[in-house]
């Protein structure tokens, strides 16, 4: 039987990859894709725990989480569209209005 740790390790790896993407990519679209990756690594965690404790609650949470991820993506893209209309770009390193 595959130990739980392997699932969790995979999840951590996925999360780190997503994290690396979030930290390095300039395009907003790619950023959101990476965030999705991180969210799904969390879902993987939920499902793994659910399986290994013989309860279904975790999987229900995963379903909710997926639905929320959809909502989050929708809002994210809408925000990027608004930004694009204002600045004609969605390159995040050029959007430094929060700068000192």
């Amino acid at each position: 039987m595959i130990p739980l740790s392997f699932y969790l390790g995979l999840s951590a790896l996925l999360f780190s990859i997503g994290l690396f993407g979030v930290m390095t990519h300039k395009s907003g679209i790619r950023l959101i894709m990476c965030i999705e990756l991180m969210l799904n690594s969390a879902n993987l965690n939920l499902v793994a725990f659910s399986s290994y404790t013989d309860t279904l609650n975790g999987q229900v949470f995963a379903l909710f989480s997926i639905a929320l991820a959809a909502a989050e993506a929708a809002i994210g893209f809408a925000i990027f569209m608004a930004i694009y209309r204002m600045h004609d770009k969605i390159n995040l390193d050029e959007l430094n209005l929060l700068r000192w």
Binding site: V22, M23, N96, L98, R99, W100
Partner: peptide, 16 residues
């Protein structure tokens, strides 16, 4: 104040 680059990703990096 140099830290406040205004780039969200920098903040994310530092936070993580």
């Amino acid at each position: 104040k140099r830290v406040q680059t205004g780039v969200v990703q920098t903040y994310a990096t530092v936070m993580i």
